[in-house]
Structure formats: structure tokens, C-alpha cells
């Protein structure tokens, strides 16, 4: 069985993971959605049509999405040091997790936003809505179920990324699993970490699905 010391360590790691993912998630939400809106509205035929902006931004997003997380983790070390002043610990992990998850979420949100029927946008234009009204009163509310669904997926991906960030000393559940479970052959800790991760993912997925269901079945 797990010792008291181990339980404390697990608890601390759990909190660290929540912390890492929570802070990153907040940033991803508030950066990803505007990014998605820009990607959608600057596309051809949309309300802020600007092909050049669209192409440049799209390429940057694709570039980050193409880079594997484990490489991003290392490549971003200078940036992480610049922003957080350190390259280890919870805060240091927030930077790569955010940088990798934002483009991912932006693309998912973009798809949901793009699926808002052009007829509804046209109706809004016809009734004299200005562009900001269209974004805040039409695009975002109509795409919300899809965006929430996409955010759920993003959160799960971020939890898995946070575990990987443990490899470079980020702390959290992944770090614990590697140090005790892998390096010290402590299978119990490993299994405990996996159980906790499964529980977190299940809860997030359930909450996300439930919310989307409620939004869609009003």
C-alpha cells in the first residue's frame, strides 16, 4: 500500500496538475477563441475578409500544430525562461502547454464557428447588425456547443501534455509517475497516477458532454 508520505506526494502532484492545466486552460480559452474568430472572419467572403492575414495566421497556427509537444517543450525553453524566469516547476510548464494547446483549440473552435449557417449571419446583416453584433450575438452563441465540445477535447489533450511536461521537471502527476513509477519501479504509484488521470479525464469529458447536451436540447 501507499505510505502517508506517498499519499501526500500524490495529493501535491494532483494539485500541481490541476494548477498547470487550469492556468493553461484559462489562457487557451481567452486566446484561442479570438484567434478562431479572426481565422473565420478574415476568410474569403466573410465579414472581415483579409486573405493575407488569414493565410499568415493560418500558417503560424499550422506550424505550432505540426511540432510535436516533446520538441516544443525543449524548443520553448528560452521563451519560458523569459516569461517565468525559470525552466522548471509548474509555472514553467504552463508556457509550452499553452503554446501547444492554443492553436489546437483555435482550429477546433474555428470549425464550429465556420459551421454557423451563413443564412443566420445574412439574417443578422439584413436586420442591421454591425460586425461586432454578429460576432457576439450570432457567431459565438450559435457555435457555443461545438466550442465547448472542442474545449473538452483540448482539456484532455492538455492533461496528457502536462504529464509529458513532467519529463522536464514540471511537477505534477506525470512527474511523479516517471520518478517513482518508472525510475524506481514503484508500480503502485504508477497505477495510482493512472487511476487519478483516468478519473480527471472522465469527469471533464462527462461535464463537457453534459453541458453540450443541455445547450443543444433547449
Amino acid at each position: 500500500m501507499l505510505s502517508q508520505r506517498m499519499l501526500d506526494a500524490l495529493w501535491q502532484a494532483f494539485l500541481d496538475t490541476l494548477y498547470m492545466v487550469g492556468v493553461s486552460a484559462a489562457i487557451v480559452w481567452f486566446v484561442g477563441i479570438p484567434l478562431a474568430i479572426i481565422l473565420v472572419t478574415t476568410a474569403k467572403g466573410q465579414i472581415f475578409e483579409a486573405p493575407l492575414v488569414n493565410r499568415v495566421l493560418g500558417s503560424i497556427v499550422n506550424g505550432f500544430r505540426a511540432t510535436p509537444f516533446i520538441i516544443l517543450l525543449v524548443a520553448l525553453i528560452p521563451l519560458t525562461r523569459l516569461i517565468t524566469g525559470t525552466t522548471i516547476g509548474v509555472w514553467a510548464a504552463v508556457v509550452p502547454i499553452t503554446v501547444s494547446a492554443t492553436p489546437f483549440f483555435a482550429r477546433i473552435a474555428e470549425v464550429s464557428l465556420r459551421e454557423v449557417s451563413s443564412g443566420v449571419i445574412e439574417a443578422a446583416q439584413a436586420m442591421g447588425c454591425q460586425k461586432r453584433h454578429i460576432i457576439f450575438n450570432v457567431l459565438l452563441p450559435e457555435a457555443l456547443p461545438g466550442i465547448i465540445g472542442g474545449f473538452t477535447i483540448t482539456l484532455v489533450a492538455m492533461i496528457s501534455a502536462s504529464a509529458m511536461a513532467g519529463a522536464i521537471g514540471a511537477g505534477g502527476l506525470g512527474d511523479l509517475a516517471i520518478r517513482y513509477g518508472y525510475q524506481r519501479y514503484d508500480t503502485t504509484v504508477m497505477l495510482a497516477v493512472i487511476a487519478i488521470l483516468i478519473a480527471i479525464v472522465a469527469i471533464i469529458q462527462y461535464a463537457g458532454d453534459r453541458y453540450v447536451y443541455l445547450l443543444k436540447n433547449r
Partner: peptide, 27 residues
């Protein structure tokens, strides 16, 4: 100029009242 459409084009995320309120809010 009011306009109505073949596929109605109502906001599915909004109640009837919120749909009706939109043109006024926009104005």
C-alpha cells in the same frame, strides 16, 4: 427593411424573445 427567409434563419441558441430582441439591441 425587414427580411424573411426560406429557412427562417433564427438563432437556435436564443429563445423566441431573444431572437426578437436582436434587431432592437443591434439598433
Amino acid at each position: 427593411i425587414g427580411m424573411i427567409f426560406q429557412h427562417f434563419n433564427l438563432l437556435s441558441s436564443a429563445t423566441v424573445f431573444e431572437n426578437l430582441a436582436l434587431p432592437l439591441k443591434a439598433a
